[in-house]
């Protein structure tokens, strides 16, 4: 009967192989369509080899967009992280207060609902007019994009505290402040982390848009400028870098989450 086990393993290997083949075919088709058949001109879709070359070239060269890949990454990270940290530091406590104190809830929630439906991207022009095109405007936009999911999720997290748990704490004579820190916030932890993850993604996306509209450094700027130069190879390098850094971020937060959140996601 270990046959069943064996079959399972064989299946697993088979499907992994299919996955690898699928990726290989993807790249081969891409290569053949571009480098061999030239179905699209190079400035529209370069071959994977050209993208790789462009990547290596970009590691050490500033041309044509005024910065090496590394410099662009650093510029983007600086903006993204400053706005993101600010959004989380203000957004999470605000969300918690909104959910915990009735009066704040009643007063702030309508205001928040008023602002929330406007996508963060629509804030970009206003922020540029208010703060110019320096670090300030971009950080402010990232702040808005990170702030909103942080508030929503920490609010929802505190609101889902079970009254039973609060009653238990009450019978032990816990004060309201103590209950907030020992019962409500731990309950909200998983959702607060969800908020952190969503807002990190939102921040990263918004950053691209902000840099495309107003910047002279950064990954968003890099892909936008290379569009006007019709350098698709560098655009793709930029896109892949953006995607890659986004993935690293969410993986890092996932690790942090599994360390910080005790007792699992549900229950």
């Amino acid at each position: 009967m270990t046959e069943l086990e064996k079959k399972k393993q064989k299946d697993k290997r088979k499907f992994a192989l299919i996955s690898v083949c699928s990726l290989c075919i993807f790249f081969t088709v891409w290569y053949i369509a571009t480098a061999v058949m030239h179905l699209m001109p190079d400035y529209c879709l370069p071959s994977p080899v050209q993208v790789l070359e462009a990547f290596i070239y970009k590691l050490g060269n500033k041309a044509p967009d005024g910065g090496t890949l590394f410099q662009h990454i650093v510029a983007s990270l600086k903006v993204a992280l400053s706005g993101y940290v600010l959004g989380a530091v203000i957004g999470i406590p605000l969300g918690i207060c909104m959910a915990w104190f009735r009066r704040i809830d009643l007063f702030v929630t309508p205001l928040f609902d008023l602002v929330r439906p406007v996508p963060t991207i629509a804030w970009i022009p206003l922020m540029i007019l208010w703060f110019g095109i320096g670090l300030g405007a971009k950080a402010a936009i990232i702040f808005v994009s990170a702030f909103i999911p942080c508030v929503i999720n920490s609010y929802a997290g505190i609101k889902q505290t079970k009254p039973v748990h609060l009653w238990v704490a009450q019978t032990f004579g816990a004060s309201r402040t103590k209950m907030l820190f020992t019962v409500a916030i731990p309950t909200a932890m998983p959702l607060i982390f969800t908020g952190l993850r969503i807002s990190l993604q939102a921040a990263w996306t918004t950053l691209c848009a902000a840099e495309m509209l107003a910047a002279n450094k950064g990954l968003g700027y890099m892909i936008q400028l290379n569009r006007s130069l019709a350098r698709a190879d560098l655009i793709i390098v930029g896109m892949l870098t953006i995607g890659f850094i986004g993935t690293i971020f969410s993986a890092g937060l996932g690790k942090l989450e599994s360390k910080m959140v005790k007792g699992g996601k549900k229950g």
Partner: peptide, 26 residues
């Protein structure tokens, strides 16, 4: 799943906005 997922996972992390320059070029 085995065929689509790897390609999907390769493309998914790129925010839609980052596609704009390439799409305009195309």
């Amino acid at each position: 799943e085995a065929i689509i997922k790897p390609i999907f996972e390769l493309i998914r992390p790129i925010p839609p906005i980052a596609w704009i320059p390439l799409v305009i070029l195309w």
